[in-house]
Write a protein that binds this DNA or RNA. Sequence first.
DNA 1: TTTAAATAGGATAAAATTGTCCTTTATTAA
DNA 2: TTAATAAAGGACAATTTTATCCTATTTAAA
Lengths: 145, 145
Amino acid sequence: MMFSKACEYGIRAAVYIALQSLDGRRVSVTEIAGEIDSPIAFTAKILQQLTRNNIVNSVKGPTGGFEIERKDMDRVNLSMIVKAIDGDNIYVGCGLGLKECNADKPCPLHDKFVDIRSNLRTMLKSTSLYELATGLEVGLTYLKR
Amino acid sequence: MMFSKACEYGIRAAVYIALQSLDGRRVSVTEIAGEIDSPIAFTAKILQQLTRNNIVNSVKGPTGGFEIERKDMDRVNLSMIVKAIDGDNIYVGCGLGLKECNADKPCPLHDKFVDIRSNLRTMLKSTSLYELATGLEVGLTYLKR
DNA sequence: TTTAAATAGGATAAAATTGTCCTTTATTAA
DNA sequence: TTAATAAAGGACAATTTTATCCTATTTAAA
Ligand code: FES
Ligand code: FES
């Protein structure tokens, strides 16, 4: 709805990797896909994007897998993940589909839409991977159901 | 981003029809598509959905076209249009793609997501077609660019 | 040094969304 | 009554998104 499937998988995967990294565990694509209930090969593609964007870290070979350093869990927020996967249309796009959102020649929904979008942006920017992972750790939230 | 292309066209079309109906003019699909800059045949499909959902009124034959009664411009809000075209996933869906949004077994983003979504729902429900059409009429907003 | 395990990446396939074309139906006006 | 006009609807095509499969590359451990 708000995010593409790829983006949803990407966020869930990143949170799971963070959670495991808090325990010092490196995780494979297969494990991740199993734990977040996503298609394996498609998830692998998305993890490549996250890796290229320095959101998670990948290590090849035996004992390899994905991980994220403790300090990066603070640095990485949802806005970065969404941008890496869905691009910044969520920020610059017009709610009614005009070429771009432009206050000088606004669509009828502009003012109200900008309002909502601004809340969303603030939320995404201020939500770190660490914050999401710790909720999971405590058992208050879930990545599949 | 937030709405499908079909939904964006649908909202723009409905607003244009409302605007013209304020002047007592009935409009054809061809005119609508021209004025909101959308593909004609695809727009026709979307207008069928709006008609079936009693959001706009259609009249066949010469002098026919689409219109919306003054009182319906107050009754119809954006939420109704979005539901008619995109369904209610926007209301019941989980932001991270879990089967459904459920506070009893929430995803890590649930609380923050519900917040944003609630703002969005309130906005959509409280925005009438009449309100959007009058902004256009006054020349403050635009349906294409 | 070989083997096996893991990610990277290219090629394709399937599904969903977006878009087009053509025929049918209804209705107005000549 | 006929002709012309406009929406309704069915079939199909193109594009985008989602998903799969297979090979190459890297690397750790036996
Ligand atoms: S112009 Fe449409 S949302 Fe800004
Ligand atoms: S469970 Fe994910 S948004 Fe409610």
